[in-house]
Computed example of a mutant assay.
Amino acid sequence: MRLVNLIAARYAAPVDLDAYVAERRGEWNRLDALTRRRGLSAAEADELVLLYQRAATHLSVVRSHSPDPILLASLSQLVIAGRSAVTGGRRFSWRPVGRFFTTTLPLELYRARRWWLAVTALNLLVGGALMAYFAAHPEIVETFVPAATAERLVNEDFVSYYSEFQAQNFAANVWTHNAMIAGQCLASGVLILPVLWVLAYNLFNIGLVGGLMIGAGHGETFFVYILPHGFLELTAIFVAAGVGLRIGWAWISPGPHRTRGRALAERARAGMLVALGLVAMLLVSGILEAYVTPSGWPDAIRIGIGFVVWLAFLGYALVLGGAADRRGESSEPDHLPAELPTA
């Protein structure tokens, strides 16, 4: 009732509109009362729909005649309350969250698998070649890393980097850093070239450091400290890059029966779903890097943990995602807003 009284009290308009409001005040009072009830009979539900339709029309009429923003806001609030009562508000449920992680995310990872698996394979080949080249040509390494810096990196900094900060702080730091790189790959995917630049830059750095460590006879140390978290971390970056390139390719080759705009929108939406999954994926890799990599456990255990987690991701994306695809699942929400009744 306060809402309706505010409408009447704040109304400052010509006589015809004043009469318009006075004539319909009873309907608004009734609509306001029905929206506040939790249980409605069938007759009251029908009345609610009818009054909501009328109030929506009244709002349109008042909006075209009244410049008073408070009046319009008050009547709009009444219409919104009526719409919410008609359509029914959705209560929070964990079901969509569960469906996202069991169906939606693995399905989109599976559908984009050709892109991120190709990116992974290409980066592994090029990265291995760069490491071998830099390990065999230390004079080339010196053009990028001064001898004193290289010696300190090999003997101290590479290992101490993983235990320099408290584990929880280090995990948060690498999580946000890697998330930023993944975000760059996804956000710039529509332009394609920036993704290739990000990949090339990170690949060069990994190849340079790996080649330096291998050439100095510390190759085992390099792989022991890279692999426990690197399996999952690098795969996450490659997934982001592959999905980003897939988005960019959509406007180059949209496919039959689709406009470039529609293809780009569909791929971008799928990319955003994968981005949500990468947040969790990179969190796991950050925990591995902060707690497992510098743990001092036997090398086989550290590497084995990282390898098992990586295999679990591949099974999640390829096996679970493939099953969802064969079932004909969709990544579209399982509920869409109901069509609102209109006057």
Rank of each mutant, 00 (worst) to 15 (best):
A343D: 08
L3W: 10
R269I: 04
G207C: 07
I303G: 01
A265K: 05
M213D: 05
F165E: 14
Y133F: 15
V141W: 06
Y133L: 15
L122A: 15
L75M: 14
L40R: 09
R91I: 12
L234A: 02
G82C: 09
L203K: 04
L51E: 03
L314H: 14
G296C: 11
W249D: 12
R258Y: 05
A263N: 01
A324P: 01
W116P: 03
A200G: 00
G215N: 12
V154C: 10
E44R: 09
V86C: 11
V97F: 11
V284M: 07
E44N: 07
T259N: 08
D157A: 08
A179M: 15
N29S: 07
A121E: 08
N178G: 09
Y52H: 14
M180D: 11
I7E: 13
A312I: 14
A323C: 06
V145W: 09
H257V: 11
R246I: 01
N202Y: 02
L314E: 11
F134V: 12
G304E: 06
G210A: 12
L31G: 00
F204T: 02
F313N: 12
G306T: 03
T235Y: 11
L124G: 10
S160G: 04
R260L: 08
A55S: 11
V224N: 12
G322Q: 06
I301P: 00
I206R: 09
Y20D: 12
N202K: 04
L105I: 00
R36C: 13
A42G: 14
A343L: 11
F222K: 00
D32Q: 15
A312S: 13
A275V: 04
I226L: 15
Y110L: 04
A81K: 11
P146A: 01
P194E: 03
D325V: 10
G315K: 14
A12P: 05
V198L: 03
A171G: 03
A9Q: 15
P138I: 08
Y133N: 12
W249P: 05
V209P: 00
L199S: 01
V126T: 03
L320H: 06
S163A: 10
L48E: 10
R258E: 09
G277P: 00
I287Q: 05
D299M: 07
V159W: 02
V308E: 07
A112G: 04
V284Q: 01
S295R: 02
E151V: 12
A112S: 13
I80K: 11
R37P: 13
W251Y: 09
L31N: 00
I303T: 02
F313L: 13
M213K: 04
G271V: 00
A33E: 15
A323L: 14
T235V: 09
T259K: 10
A280W: 10
W116L: 08
A187Q: 05
R258M: 08
N29G: 08
V61A: 10
R99F: 07
T57C: 06
L186M: 04
N5K: 15
E142Y: 08
L311I: 15
V190F: 07
S60Y: 12
W28Q: 10
T259C: 13
G248E: 00
R267E: 13
T104F: 00
W28M: 10
S60W: 08
Q168G: 06
A12C: 09
T221G: 06
L234F: 07
G88V: 08
S93L: 12
E289V: 02
I181M: 09
Y225A: 01
A33T: 14
N29M: 07
G242K: 04
L72R: 11
A56V: 15
R327N: 05
E151R: 14
